[in-house]
């Protein structure tokens, strides 16, 4: 017999439906407009740590399943559409585990003129609302990336040399038979510390990520070493990633080219830069902040489950 049955219980499917309604009420009350953008596009992210599913259409043209609705939503903002949100499916290749499913649901929104503090606050508001009364909502911590390292190992991230990171990686059990870049080791060390040192019964907003990990966030005006990027964790589970958005089209192009160079050095597939996003930002992306929340993970915690598959009707293993 095949594994035809749902991976979620009826109770969890009911919780999922309620949560979707809550999300829509949350944004409706705040005057944020719901939008829908295409799940399939002609361009994909250049981010070297994210792989898209691709397929060819009947004319053999390459198409991509979106890994996030970010580019399309930014094009709407550049065209003059104000505060927007979207609840949609996203797809990421080879991301499979207890808190990963290659097809998943994202809540993503953009707020005009929001500061880092405002967008972090709104992310926490949504998360708390969906979690309900839960062990995680006992405390809400705001901690910079540097301070998180200080809290975990008594040394600020800024004070760590490349060699220090390498030594920590070895100490924490990183197998290094194959070549690894400094950036990859930093990812490992940070993920290790999140697992071991994040307060288990609290929501933690970690902000001011190192500039090298800015992704599409603006660089801080007072400290060029850090970016206006944040993440929200519930215990050790990453729930949200957001930025005060980089609006400068020239810097955006530089970052995309850097992504492409990293892809080349790691032997990953070549990804073209999305010309429509670039043109939209040249036209003018208004000052704004945006964030994406993993809906399935949030629901998993709200339902006291330990696998996202338990809140999805069918998961990758039986989709």
């Amino acid at each position: 017999m095949s594994n035809w049955q749902p991976t979620a219980s009826l109770t969890n499917l009911q919780a999922r439906a309620r949560a979707l309604t809550q999300v829509r009420e949350f944004f409706s009350q705040r005057g944020v407009l719901e939008v829908e953008t295409p799940l399939v596009g002609a361009h994909a992210v250049t981010d070297p740590n994210i792989e898209s599913f691709t397929f060819a259409d009947e004319q053999a043209a390459q198409h991509y399943l979106q890994t996030s609705p970010e580019y399309a939503m930014k094009r709407l903002l550049a065209a003059g559409v104000p505060d927007i949100y979207q609840v949609c499916k996203c797809f990421r290749k080879a991301e499979q585990g207890d808190v990963h499913n290659p097809e998943f649901t994202m809540i993503e929104w953009y707020r005009l003129g929001f500061t880092l503090e405002q967008i972090m606050q709104e992310s926490v508001d949504l998360i708390v609302e969906l979690l309900g009364k839960q062990k995680y909502t006992k405390a809400i911590n705001y901690l910079s990336y540097n301070d998180f390292f200080s809290h975990a190992i008594d040394v600020s991230f800024a004070a760590l040399s490349t060699k220090d990171i390498q030594e920590l990686a070895i100490e924490y059990g990183l197998q290094q038979d194959q070549a690894m870049s400094h950036a990859q080791m930093v990812d490992f060390v940070c993920a290790y510390l999140v697992d071991k040192h994040m307060q288990a019964d609290a929501i933690t907003c970690m902000y001011h990520y190192p500039a090298e990990q800015a992704a599409l966030a603006k660089i801080n005006v007072n400290d060029p070493a850090v970016a206006e990027r944040f993440e929200v964790f519930c215990g050790g589970v990453e729930l949200a990633n957001g930025y005060v958005e980089l609006v400068d089209a020239n810097i955006l192009l530089e970052r995309f080219k850097k992504d492409q160079a990293v892809r080349r050095s790691r032997g990953l597939d070549y990804v073209d830069i999305d010309p429509r996003l670039l043109d939209a930002q040249k036209h003018g992306l208004p000052e704004c902040a945006g964030v994406a929340v993993g809906f399935d993970r949030l629901l998993m915690l709200a339902c006291n489950e330990n696998r996202v598959q338990h809140v999805m009707s069918f998961s990758w293993s039986n989709a």
Binding site: D47, N49, I50, A94, E95, Q96, G97, D98, H100, A183, Q184, D187, F188, C190, A191, V194, D195, Q213, A215, E231, E238, N241, A292, G294
Partner: peptide, 13 residues
Amino acid sequence: EFVKPGKGQAFNR
């Protein structure tokens, strides 16, 4: 265990 920061390198712990 599959571990991956949203914007970072994926690992198997």
